[in-house]
């Protein structure tokens, strides 16, 4: 076998290992969600069950995820916070992007550094500083509001980067053309700039929501006595309660797989149209926030 053939074999083997490493743990977790065992484990297999989604144990107590009122409350909180984060982060990110694209020179570099710094800051620190600031300066304690604020600190930065990437491809003479033709600044923004930014606004809103939904490190410090889905999951995991946690995992994975398939199908159509290599560059933009 030639050296290159050997290399190719090696690559294939490595990829197989890598994807096994990526997926097998998830597979085990899913399997355990359907195991009748009282502990979240795949082995020993004690038979197939759906009781961790909906069901009752021998003494008639509910065991399923969908019967858990606290979980439902936590989910509702997560949705509320996510909506709040969209409402706060998208305008902040948009303002930041518009400001930075109108600035030149050193001021721009400095402001850019300040506005992206939250992305490079550990989430716990963002949570801590938010808590301290609002508690000491305004006597606002941890809770849903502070969760929105704390998460938006860095999610707005992600939104801003999305907007800046889109604005990079914006032809600024379009703004001037509109003004030259007699449009007011507001008309220009409404008819020219916002329609151009629409896809970026939609994806920024989506990503803001998803990042908020799964955030843990920052939320932990600013949530106070409230609960969110992620916080709730973490508590259950730590206490090692029942395979109901695995059932959540199943739902998460199912939602993700569906979304990913949808994305791939769309992407493939785009590839077919443009005859280019599929570039999951957007995959990175779809990435959850660090921290």
């Amino acid at each position: 076998m030639s050296a290159r053939g050997l290399l190719r074999l090696f690559t294939a083997l490595y990829l197989a290992l890598f994807f096994a490493y990526l997926f097998l743990p998830l597979v085990f977790m899913v399997a355990a969600a359907f195991n009748a065992s009282r502990f979240p484990t795949m082995l020993p297999w004690e038979g197939f069950t759906l009781q961790w989604f909906w069901g009752f144990d021998a003494r008639g107590r509910p065991t399923g995820l969908f019967q858990d009122a606290r979980m439902a409350a936590a989910l509702w909180n997560s949705i509320l916070i996510g909506a709040g984060v969209i409402l706060l982060s998208v305008p902040l990110g948009l303002a930041g992007a518009l400001l930075l694209t109108s600035l030149q020179s050193r001021l721009k570099g400095f402001l850019y550094a300040v506005l992206v710094s939250p992305i490079l800051t550990p989430g716990v620190i963002l949570g801590i500083s938010t808590l301290i600031f609002w508690q000491r300066a305004f006597e606002v304690g941890g809770g849903l509001f502070l969760a929105v604020v704390g998460q938006s600190t860095f999610i707005a930065s992600y939104c801003m980067l999305l907007f800046m990437a889109r604005l990079e491809r914006f032809d600024r003479t379009l703004e001037e053309a509109a003004l030259d033709l007699g449009a007011s600044h507001l008309q220009m923004v409404r008819r020219i700039l916002l329609p151009f930014l629409r896809p970026a606004i939609l994806s920024a809103a989506l990503i803001a929501f998803l990042q908020s939904f799964e955030n843990y490190n920052t939320t932990l410090f600013v949530i106070g006595a409230e609960d969110t889905l992620t916080i709730n999951i973490a508590t259950r995991v730590r206490l090692g309660l029942t395979p109901a946690v695995n059932a959540i995992g199943v739902l998460f994975i199912a939602a993700t797989v569906l979304a990913a398939i949808g994305w791939a199908v769309l992407r493939r159509r785009e590839v077919a149209v443009r005859r280019e290599r599929p570039v999951p560059a957007r995959a990175q933009r779809l990435a959850p926030a660090a921290g």
Partner: peptide
């Protein structure tokens, strides 16, 4: 495309569940 999509999936299963697995 398939490989890239496969990468995205565990990405969106949240950190806690990934660790839990």
């Amino acid at each position: 495309l398939l490989l890239a999509t496969a990468l995205v999936i565990p990405f969106w299963v949240n950190e806690i569940l990934r660790t839990f697995s």
